[in-house]
Simulated scan of single mutants.
Amino acid sequence: MTAVLDWIAVCCMLVGAALSFAAGVGLVRFPDLLSRLHTSTKPQILGLLLILVGLGLRLAPEPRVGILLLIALFQILTVPVAGHIAGRVTYRTGRARGDLIAIDELRERLNEDAPDSSRS
């Protein structure tokens, strides 16, 4: 049974490493910042989770598996929020390429929230 768990752990770690490598390549190769934000959040988190699952399978009888769960929870909660904030800052500073945005719901929302200078 341990041989089967070892092979599953190795497969999880290899797939996770491949996803993390793909995210790194995407950060270098994608043309604009919004595409880079996508590749830095989604495949990176999935890759890290697969690596942590592989480590958890290898360390299963030890009590250190709880630390891996804490690492996974922290990453799941913080990385998407950081990506969202970086995307908002990119958009608001005008560094996002408008020709690549298909539906721009944020512009409408920002226009609604902007103070009207004619009211004062």
Rank of each mutant, 00 (worst) to 15 (best):
L5H: 10
L48D: 01
M13T: 00
L33D: 00
A102V: 15
P63Y: 08
G83I: 07
V89Q: 07
L100M: 09
S40C: 13
G54Q: 06
D104Y: 01
S20G: 15
G26Q: 02
T2F: 12
S117M: 09
A22R: 06
V53H: 03
I85S: 04
L5M: 14
M1N: 10
E105L: 10
W7H: 12
I85P: 02
R88W: 06
R36F: 00
S35A: 13
L46E: 09
W7E: 11
L5C: 08
L33K: 07
R109E: 15
H38I: 05
G87S: 12
R92D: 09
L19M: 15
P43Y: 01
V53T: 13
T41A: 13
V10Q: 11
R119W: 13
I103N: 07
G83T: 09
D104E: 04
L34A: 12
L57K: 05
L27D: 02
R119E: 14
R88Y: 07
G83V: 08
E108D: 13
V65K: 01
L19C: 06
G16R: 00
L100G: 03
L50M: 14
Q44Y: 04
L27G: 08
L73G: 13
H38R: 09
K42E: 06
P115E: 11
A86I: 10
A96C: 05
E105K: 07
I76F: 11
G83S: 14
L46D: 06
E105D: 15
V25H: 03
F30E: 05
G87F: 04
S35V: 04
L5Y: 12
I71S: 02
P43H: 00
T78V: 11
L106K: 05
S35N: 10
G16T: 03
G16Q: 02
N111I: 07
I76N: 02
K42Y: 03
P43A: 00
T90K: 01
E108F: 08
V25P: 01
G24Q: 00
P31Q: 08
R58D: 04
R107Y: 02
D6Y: 12
Y91D: 04
I51T: 09
T2P: 06
V65E: 03
R97C: 05
L48W: 06
L73D: 04
L77S: 14
L14D: 00
L57F: 10
R92M: 12
G87I: 02
P31A: 11
A114H: 11
G56L: 02
L46G: 08
L37S: 01
R97K: 09
V81S: 09
V53N: 03
A96N: 00
E112R: 15
R119K: 15
V65Q: 08
C11L: 15
R36V: 05
V65I: 13
V15W: 01
L46Y: 14
T39E: 01
N111M: 12
V28C: 08
P61E: 11
V53I: 15
L27H: 02
C11S: 14
T2R: 13
L34E: 11
D99L: 05
P80L: 06
K42Q: 10
G87L: 05
S20C: 15
V79D: 03
A114C: 08
D113N: 12
